[in-house]
Amino acid sequence: MKRSFIPLLIICLLMAGAVPAGAASIPAGFDSWPLQGTTDAKKVWTIKFSLPLDSNSVNRSNIYVTDDSNRSVSTSLVRSADGTSVQVKPSSAYTVGKKYWLFISGGLTAANGKNALAQPIAAPFLVAEENSKIIQISASHSPLLTSFTVLTSADVFSVKINSKNMIYQGNNTYTLGMTGLKTGGTVTVYAYDSKGKCLKNQKYTIK
């Protein structure tokens, strides 16, 4: 995925998703990004900038990872030779099924002394089992409408709930609103490849 903040920055997190932020405490002033999903327990994040960074500001105070309980996760940072990108590598594999947060703080600066970000970033990501097709299903339920969000792997081409097509929102994320559903009821989510083959189906109970 790609978003720009000021001419100084283009950050590429190379993953996808869109679910509301979770339990972690987000520092004041941080822009909370949509949830990402990965099946790579040793996922290396690559952050790209349009101008070289000040090497002294590339440290674990300004770029860091926590779990969903705000516990620090050990990582190493590798700045590219030209200073325009940083890789964030976990010291050990992430735990499958857990949610983590990648934080990029306002202390990060460019080599010219200017701030590297217009706003600090908090980017959540969920580590799923290898070969997972449906990474996460979530829903917001009311008596009038149930709004579903489904996060999939990159090889999923389309998704249905029961017989209804979900709407692709980008970043491997699909949404759909449905009426007439009740708490405790179930729906079935189907994930398909580009040829219409069902890769995975999974039941979901409405809460």
Rank of each mutant, 00 (worst) to 15 (best):
F148R: 00
L145V: 07
L181Y: 13
G177W: 02
S153P: 01
T186F: 07
T146R: 02
I167G: 08
N172T: 13
G196P: 02
V159R: 05
N165R: 10
G170V: 14
I167H: 12
Q169N: 15
D155H: 01
G184W: 04
V150Y: 02
N172M: 12
T186P: 02
Y174C: 07
M166Q: 12
M166K: 09
Y190G: 03
T183G: 05
L151N: 10
V150E: 00
N171A: 15
S138P: 01
F157V: 00
I161N: 02
G196R: 07
T188F: 05
I167M: 12
G180I: 05
T152V: 01
T186V: 10
N162R: 08
L181C: 05
T179D: 14
A191K: 09
Y192A: 04
V156R: 06
I161R: 04
S140Y: 05
Q169A: 12
V156F: 00
G184I: 05
I167L: 12
H141E: 04
K160G: 00
T188D: 08
A154H: 11
K164P: 00
V159K: 05
L176Y: 13
D193A: 07
V159Y: 00
A154I: 04
L181E: 08
S140E: 12
S194H: 03
L144C: 01
A154Q: 07
M178K: 11
F157R: 03
S194W: 05
Y174R: 05
I161C: 04
T183D: 09
I161L: 12
V156M: 04
G196S: 03
T188M: 13
L151S: 07
D193V: 03
D155L: 01
K197F: 06
S147D: 01
T173P: 11
Q169R: 14
V187N: 08
G184L: 06
N172W: 12
